[in-house]
């Protein structure tokens, strides 16, 4: 903690949630998945910060906001190794890891142009059928696709 405070690259928050160790190129995906742009909260974003673990990282600090676990699990697609720290009175009171949810509703777009979800105003729905290899299956057209290849809505 001591050392951390010394070289803090982004200002600390008093209460809220810190999402750390986001791969830098996925930072803005996380912002959009969590719909941070629509939030009234005070949000600090650090981009292209140095990280010993992953090279360049992103960090997001959201003041006064605690997420539901399933909301956070949505970012597992882009930042499965992100760290979630719950902050109270400038202290980390809880660390959470991210789990890949079994079902993804309205989060990613189906790769199949002939899928009904790409042609009808409706929510997409995917099931995680292989967690290790990150294979998602569209509930509608039944096409299997790798999580690396899908576009976040």
């Amino acid at each position: 903690m001591q050392e951390n405070k010394k070289e803090l690259q982004v200002a600390a928050i008093e209460n809220g949630t810190v999402i750390d160790h986001i791969p830098a190129d996925k930072l803005f995906s996380v912002v959009s998945i969590l719909k941070l742009a629509e939030m009234p909260n005070n949000i600090t974003i650090g981009f292209n910060l140095d990280s010993k673990k992953i090279g360049k990282k992103g960090i997001i600090k959201i003041a006064g906001k605690y997420f539901e676990e399933e909301e956070l699990d949505k970012i597992s697609l882009v930042a499965p190794h992100a760290h979630i720290n719950i902050i109270k009175d400038y202290k980390i009171i809880e660390k959470k890891s991210i789990n890949m949810p079994h079902e993804l509703v309205g989060i990613v777009k189906c790769n199949n142009p002939k899928c009904i979800t790409n042609n009808e105003p409706m929510k997409t729905r995917f099931t995680l059928i292989d967690e290790e290899q990150g294979i998602l299956k569209c509930h509608y057209c039944e096409k299997e696709q790798n999580k690396e290849d899908v576009v976040i809505l």
Binding site: K114, I116, E120, C141, E142
Partner: peptide
């Protein structure tokens, strides 16, 4: 019958 995949499921 529909030309789009997943239409019947939906």
């Amino acid at each position: 019958r529909h030309y789009l995949e997943g239409a019947a499921r939906y």
